[in-house]
Design a protein around this nucleic acid. Structure first.
Length: 474
RNA sequence: GUGCUCAUAGCUUAAAGGUAAAGCUCCGUUCUGUGGAAGCGGCGAUACGGGUUCGAUUCCCGUUGAGCACCCCA
């Protein structure tokens, strides 16, 4: 009987785990055993804090090590992102990974889940109350205000790539420390900016080779039209309160907009007949949204208008959008929207802005499940083998000379036997080995060995660089 | 945070209420100036704590961690 592939594998293949994308699919043996999902390859066993003897340290829950053989995925995603967004005039910015708690309580919104349930907060010895950033935007806005970027040419286009922290229950595709790339366009109200961000994320995904994702857009209006709409919505739902699920009755009090994307069948039916935001947009919001959609059409970017799309952060106004996988996981890869009031809210002058964030681990999991190969760094082509004390000393010097000439060389200086060194050379995939022994060192010669054919030639040490280069070209 | 499922070496798997087995990897060696093959050997595990039992890695409970669903989100 063949082992059933884990359901998640097709949609959320192990993130980074080393050899693994493929292998991980086998997890869950016949006993249904589950393997750890986090990205890293090996990991330590859980710690016993009592005994003090068998203590083994492990990564904190929901976090993971990114081992060497995973790095190329991260480099690929951030590389493609940097390349594309800088071509579109985005400038890099780094902000601290922790900030004053109030920045997020105010910015992200005190009623949001992110703030209510998921913050990593800590008090410092000095009495400061900080939080590991649960998202980028408030930090970027803080920096915009703090450094007077309003006097830079507008709009200010900024990008960041880095870790984000949310104290959530981990699941596949959901971690407590993960990475995002984040784009913000601050200082200009034009809908072209909303579209630019959607386009950039699309371009990045396409360049990475990701298939099968869709873009959903909606407008939730400005505070004016939304508050009118909210009243209507609350009226509508109040009348049918009994038909709502338990959660939705809570939502009705706290965050009525969220009623719209409840997944309960009953609630969905109610939502279908509920008033839709886009029908109640004020004229300006309506025009803004219309132009967003028209521009998307003009650019041939396919999108789904989802009138029930509501995002979880308080600061959004007008345009909101999401990138999701089209399989049944519906995994959200990126999300964003306009936040025209946030700068003001955080103490700046009223300034329009729009932003987007994408989850790097989720993107990587898609790269793996879609079997998209990442170009690997080429291994060293040359392996330096030494023999005897003199050979060893000289080889270190030679190593630097070769490196200096732009050749990528590998070695195992710690090994002494020629056998184990050639074995290592073989494993490294090197095309040629340079053998520097006692005899060669004394005669100022070196042996060039073709690893494939085994053919060797002794050349004078001065000619080693040209000899190597000649052979590498073949 | 709630519910369900799960946990054997670095990886992939096996067995069993009575000393836990193998393949891959790694290291060494046969072969101290020549790798890839082969042989031999070595390292290395029942996540942690407790209970039942003559005996638990196996059964039970708790903890930790993971997977799934919900919640929410990147």
């Amino acid at each position: 009987m063949s082992r059933p592939k884990k359901k998640t594998m097709t949609r959320l293949p192990r993130s980074p785990r080393g050899k693994a994308g493929g292998k991980a699919g086998k997890a869950g043996g016949k006993a249904g055993r589950q393997r750890r999902a986090s990205p890293q390859a090996g990991r330590q066993r859980p710690a016993s804090r009592q005994t003090g003897r068998k203590v083994k340290f492990q990564v904190p829950k929901g976090t993971f090590d990114i081992l060497p053989n995973e790095q190329n995925y991260y480099e690929r995603v951030s590389g493609v992102t940097k390349q594309l967004v800088s071509a579109y005039g985005f400038l890099p910015i780094n902000t601290p990974i922790f900030e004053d708690v109030q920045l997020f309580e105010k910015g992200t919104g005190a009623t949001t889940d992110v703030i209510q349930k998921e913050m990593y907060t800590f008090k410092t010895k000095g009495g400061d109350y900080f939080v590991l950033r649960p998202e980028f935007t408030p930090s970027i806005v803080r920096a915009y205000i703090e450094h007077g970027m309003k006097s830079w040419p507008q709009p200010v286009k900024l990008y960041s790539i880095g870790p984000i922290f949310r104290h959530e229950k981990p699941q596949a595709g959901r971690f407590r420390q993960f990475h995002q790339f984040n784009l913000e366009i601050i200082g200009e109200a034009s809908p072209i900016n909303d579209v630019l961000l959607i386009q950039l994320v699309t371009l990045i995904f396409k360049k990475l080779g990701i298939k099968g994702f869709n873009i959903q857009v909606n407008s939730i209006g400005c505070s004016d039209c939304r508050s009118d709409y909210k009243k209507l919505l609350i009226d509508y739902y109040r009348k049918q309160r009994r038909k709502l699920c338990r959660h939705c009755r809570e939502r009705l009090k706290l965050n009525p907009l969220r009623l719209l994307d409840c997944k309960e069948e009953k609630c969905r039916q109610l939502a279908n007949n509920a008033p839709q935001v886009i029908d109640y947009l004020c004229e300006e919001c309506h025009n803004h949204f219309k132009e967003v959609l028209e521009t998307l059409d003009e650019l041939d970017i396919p999108y789904l208008l989802n009138p029930y799309l509501v995002r979880g952060l308080d600061y959004y106004t007008r345009t909101v959008f999401e990138f999701r996988l089209e399989d049944d996981s519906l995994l959200e890869l990126a999300g964003g929207g306009r936040y025209d009031r946030l700068i003001e809210l955080l103490g700046g002058k009223p300034t329009p802005a729009v932003g987007v964030a994408a989850g790097i681990e989720r993107i990587i999991s898609v790269l793996k499940s879609q079997d998209i190969k990442i170009p690997r760094e080429v291994p060293p082509r040359i392996f330096l083998v030494h023999l005897g004390e003199l050979g060893r000393k000289r080889s270190l010097k030679l190593f630097e000379e070769l490196r200096n000439k732009g050749l990528k060389v590998a070695e195992t200086l710690s090994k002494t036997s020629i056998k184990s060194q050639l074995k290592a050379a073989d494993k490294s995939g090197a095309k040629i080995a340079l053998i520097l022994g006692q005899k060669e060192a004394l005669e100022n010669n070196i042996i060039i060995r073709d690893m494939k054919s085994g053919v060797q030639e002794t050349v004078s040490i001065e000619r080693v660089v040209s000899g190597v280069k000649k052979r590498l070209k073949k």
